[in-house]
Design a protein around this nucleic acid. Sequence first.
DNA 1: CCATTAAGTAACTTTTATTGTTACATTAAA
DNA 2: TTTAATGTAACAATAAAAGTTACTTAATGG
Lengths: 138, 138
Amino acid sequence: MRKDSRLSRVLHILVHLDAAEQAATSEQMAQMLQTNPVVVRRTMALLRERGYVQSSKGHKGGWSLAKPLAQITLLDIHQALGDSSVFTIGLTDEHTNCPIEHAVNAALKDVMDEAENLMIKRFGEITLDVLSQQFSKH
Amino acid sequence: MRKDSRLSRVLHILVHLDAAEQAATSEQMAQMLQTNPVVVRRTMALLRERGYVQSSKGHKGGWSLAKPLAQITLLDIHQALGDSSVFTIGLTDEHTNCPIEHAVNAALKDVMDEAENLMIKRFGEITLDVLSQQFSKH
DNA sequence: CCATTAAGTAACTTTTATTGTTACATTAAA
DNA sequence: TTTAATGTAACAATAAAAGTTACTTAATGG
């Protein structure tokens, strides 16, 4: 199943940004992630909308943090990237009048909701400065 | 993100099979799921390998349960379909020597593992006869 | 004030795994 | 021996993310 690696990638960028002295360009980040500047802008734009980063155009322009890492959680970034479900398991709703399908989907949904809620809770407990400190230890 | 709806679909089939008097053909199941008989065979073959269903060729052939629903859990079926990760969130491992990437991925992996373990635990607790009873109530 | 450097963005292409399809072989029952 | 079913290989269609191109806008420095 295809994976969405935007969360992992953008977190990587944010921790680097924190360590950087000046704004980083999309071009630089793209090289770091072995991708394309436009892809970087697309993803970073979602974080800017929520006020986690800021961008400036022109000479000496680029991206920088708009908030300290200690004030951003994994959940914040996860949500900024869009709220599509985190599971590869999909429910079918082809026959909305089939009671068996209802029972099956209800059972699966219960479990998935519980697991997603746990994940969201944990993500909300982890701020990005912790990640930064973790790597500094080495 | 693309969803894998095989679990939901195949559970639907299994509960129907339990209620059925005789073997059901791939063709019939395909119509039920609005899909193709070959797709049905592909998925059902994975369950047969684990001994949850059996198939017979020729006249009056088709698929039937090889075990009572009470002896099959959601987890059994989930695992029979393959053990690919249940999350749409992917980790990048482009720079295996970047300590920041390591810290980011470790944090994400911890949380995802915890959530997946919870899901697996719950799936293991639910047998398919429960789904069958649930729908019979209505 | 103009050249350069950067982001913003729309439109399009590529990629890749699932899903769907076709075609044919095999098997079993009537 | 015909018919109805699965088994399976090979190929096509689909869809979403990721990548790319091309152009616009904006800000800085000389």
